[in-house]
Amino acid sequence: MAAQQESGGSLSAVLSPEEQAGQDRFNQIIADDSRIEPRDWMPEAYRKTLTRQMSQHAHSEIIGMQPEANWITRAPSLKRKAILMAKVQDEAGHGLYLYSGTETLGTPRDVLNEQLMTGKAKYSSIFNYPARSWADMGAIGWLVDGAAIANQVPLCRASYGPYGRAMVRICKEESFHQRQGFEILLELANGTQAQKKMAQDAINRFYAPSLMMFGPPDSDSPNSGQSTAWKIKRFSNDELRQRFVGMIAEQVKVLGLTLPDPELRFDAETGTWIHMELDWVEFKAVIAGNGPCNAQRLQRRRDAHNEGAWVREAAAAYAAKMARKTEVA
């Protein structure tokens, strides 16, 4: 799912000759549009920015499993149940690649997990909204995964090799997720009155939060510049939001449903899509922990972790016993 758009950090002022050589080589790789690999020298701020962005992305995948897992046991047909299970499993897989990718920057998974559970690390705020109806499985696939893809396709070219490569696989699976979400909505839109109403209601609730997944407006996104210079970020928040809203404005017509945005129109003069003002106060409040489900999502993660502690301890003890056995033999 979504990497929250953000960046930060600055280069340290004084470099040793070795560091300067590393910095020069780093600058050259960036200028050549080539890839930085884990063993390459990189500025601390680059490492920190990527660690934060990649782990936020991983956390978003892991927390994002919850609203959808909420509907696995109630999926209305066995085929939909199978698809949803596979999708949520994919998300766990994405979380794993991204944690592994982040580990190549030097921070182990248990540290990242700790940051998530203590609330120190952030994740995509949209998952702090509840998945209240089956149609939300469609809206999450179509809008939330759709916004994630718009964010993530450019990340396939991110300057950090392990991130870019992870994103290639993730984007392939996400685009399948988006299509299945759209298909859920299409089926509902062509179904009974109650199903159609359910679909429209889900779109109404997820539209604005999905637009906010691209992060604050460019005018209020002070850290984007550095990420762009490092070629982690290729397009601005507003550019990506534009691209996305234009796409869904067309797709919603196929559904025969509407987007809850009376101001939405294509402005031929500027060649851009105009959409309604988004509620950035709510966005910040949800990020700060005040969304409807923040507490629930984090508690579920902590519970799973704490209740699994004895299992991990046993596995470690068993592995140690086996290692000793091999040594003795």
């Binding site: 892991i62 499993m65 919850q66 897992a69 696995i72 046991t73 149940k81 299970m85 949520v88 499993q89 766990a92 897989g93 979380g95 794993l96 944690y99 579920r300 519970d303 799973a304 972790h305 209740e307 699994g308 502690a309 299992v311 991990r312």
Partner: peptide, 15 residues
């Protein structure tokens, strides 16, 4: 079993 998805002791077990 599907209830374990997002509740396993390790991510690998969720999968």
């Amino acid at each position: 079993l599907s209830h374990w998805i997002s509740r396993g002791p390790e991510l690998e077990e969720d999968i």
